[in-house]
Each structure stands twice: as C-alpha cells, then as structure tokens.
C-alpha cells in the first residue's frame, strides 16, 4: 500500500483492521476494558483522559487521542510540552521513573495497560521502543538483536533466522551480515540506530514508539531512518516524537500538537492542542497556537 493510499483509508476500514488484529493477537486479561474515546479514530492504542504526574508535578493533562493501525503518528510541540512523557506512557517506561503516576487510561486494543492483571513484559513485547540516542548494548550485533527474544522467553526455533529477518527489516542486513559477531559499537551512529530498530522489531511487536530517533544523527542517516519508518509502517504502527517539523510532515499520516501553558500558580502542564491528519495540521490548522508553532512564530 502506498502512502497516499494509506492516508485515504477511512476510519471505518481501520476499525475493521484493528478489530481483526485484536482477535488474533491480544491475550492480555480482558477485565480492564476501556470504552472508546468519543470522536477519536478507533485505533491500536487509545488514550482516555490521560494525565501524568511526577510526584506533585502535573506534567500532562487531559490527553485524548488514538493511534491508527499501520499509520505513523507524529507528536510535535515545543520542549517541555509533555510529548515524550505521553510516549513513554504507551509502553509503561514511566514505571521506571520514581514518583511517576498515570491517571486515566491507556487502552491497547481496548485493554488498559495500567490495569491490575497486566504484565508489563507482555506490554513491552508488543509495544517496542527506539530511543533518542542510539543505545545498543555493549555486545555483538547478533546478541543485540537476539536480546529481546531471549529475555522474553519467545519460543524461537531458529534464532539466526529471527536475527536476519529483523536486520533485513531494519535495512541493515547487507551492511552487517559479515560481521554479526562484532561489537555493535563499531557501527556508525545511523547504523546503531537502525540496529536499535532491528532489536525492537525482533520481538515482533505491533507498535513501535520512537522518541526523537534522529536527533543524534546527521542528515544522511536521518534520511535513511525516515525511509525505513515509511517502509516499516506497512507492518507496524509507529508513533514518533520529533522536534523536526519537516520530518513529521514527511513521514506521518497524523500529527498531534502539544503545548504547555502556565496556570495561575505558574505550573506548566502539557496539553494536546490539536490532533488531526498531518495534511490538515500543516496545511490548515484549526488552532491559532498550532499555526504559530508550525510557521515558526513560537516555540
């Protein structure tokens, strides 16, 4: 499916697709089902009244949005607007931050991933993540890719095959096939980031979260990662946080614009200002703040 076709897929079609996906893939306890958000497209992940606190500080509030299956959704906004915080809620990486607390619901195929019976390992196996700075383990290229399947106890009959498929999927195989046993630190920054993508897709996730994946890379490596993202979107649901608005415009089908505004007490809390198709956000934004941001007049 080409990108332009993807953009025209209607909400209804997407709903059908994600429904069948949920039938076949989801085995998480279904006791914590969350009703869909009104008005938002019914997607793989739906946020309902999401609110995140770091101890007493309310970092983000009132986020209602939904991420479509096999789409790229970009989260943009000025620094400190909470977009990375929202992203890290989607696979419970905020669990690792002492004092972090999440209110509202993050529904994955209708199941709240913050529900009581949910196993965080199951969540992270289905919702992978790529970080801002390439963070390969100080191990061989092969062991980096095999790490996820090994630690999650995936039943793998042929690990070599899994590693090759993941590396091919991340468009890295041809560059590294002769040096799989070499340390991953010998790779260039862009190659390391593609290795991290290969590592993430080795566990066969449905969703890949990317937190400014190109901010540490040069323009050529960035272009490669962007091409890769578009390619991956035919298989995976991708949610990307980026500071680079051209990048959001180039790769994504939907864009959410966040901003943080100080309240009476001077506390800055991030909010989702506008969430729509990328075309709409960049061509004809509804909110004046969005327009100011994307035209570079603010942030």
């Amino acid at each position: 499916m080409t990108r332009s076709e993807q953009r025209t897929v209607s909400t209804e079609q997407r709903t059908n697709k994600s429904d069948t996906a949920s039938e076949s893939q989801v085995t998480i306890e279904r006791s914590n089902t969350v009703p869909p958000v009104e008005g938002a497209p019914d997607g793989v992940i739906t946020l309902k009244d999401l609110e995140v606190f770091y101890s007493d500080f309310r970092a983000v509030t009132n986020v209602n949005m939904s991420f479509g299956s096999r789409e790229i959704t970009a989260l943009i906004g000025p620094s400190g607007c909470g977009k990375s915080t929202v992203l890290r809620c989607l696979n419970r990486m905020n669990d690792l931050v002492p004092g972090a607390r999440v209110e509202g619901a993050v529904a994955y195929h209708g199941v709240d991933i913050y529900g009581e019976d949910v196993d965080v390992i199951e969540v992270r196996r289905r919702i992978g993540m790529v970080f801002q700075k390439p963070n390969p383990f100080p191990k061989s290229i092969y062991d980096n890719v095999a790490y996820g399947p090994r630690v999650t106890g995936m039943k793998v009959s042929d690990m070599d095959n899994v590693v090759e498929r993941a590396l091919r999927g991340a468009a890295l195989w041809d560059e590294v096939k002769d040096k799989l046993k070499q340390n991953a630190f010998g790779l260039s920054g862009g190659q390391q980031q593609r290795l991290c993508i290969a590592r993430a897709i080795a566990t066969s996730p449905e969703v890949i979260l990317m937190d400014e994946p190109c901010s540490a890379l040069d323009p050529i490596a960035t272009a490669k990662i962007e091409d890769l993202m578009v390619e991956l979107a035919s298989t995976y649901t991708i949610i990307i946080v980026t500071h680079n608005m051209q990048q959001a415009a180039r790769v994504s089908q939907r864009t959410g614009f966040f901003t943080a505004e100080a309240d009476d007490k001077g506390q800055r809390t991030g909010r989702l200002v506008e969430f729509d198709t990328t075309e709409h956000i960049f061509g004809n934004p509804s909110d004046a703040r969005t327009e100011a941001y994307i035209t570079g007049r603010f942030g």
């Binding site: 390992i121 196996r125 963070n135 790490y147 996820g148």
Partner: peptide, 24 residues
C-alpha cells in the same frame, strides 16, 4: 540508556542486571 533499552525489550530487573549492566 542501556537499562532503558533492556526494559523496553521486555526484560525484567534481574535479566537487565545480569545481561546488560553486569557485563558493561
């Protein structure tokens, strides 16, 4: 960042300690 990478792949604390932190 290395620990986060490990947790994001579904590793638990012991696996992260033994397989990532300890060798590093």
């Amino acid at each position: 960042a290395l620990r986060q990478g490990s947790y994001a792949l579904g590793a638990n604390r012991m696996q992260t300690t033994i397989r990532v932190v300890f060798p590093a």
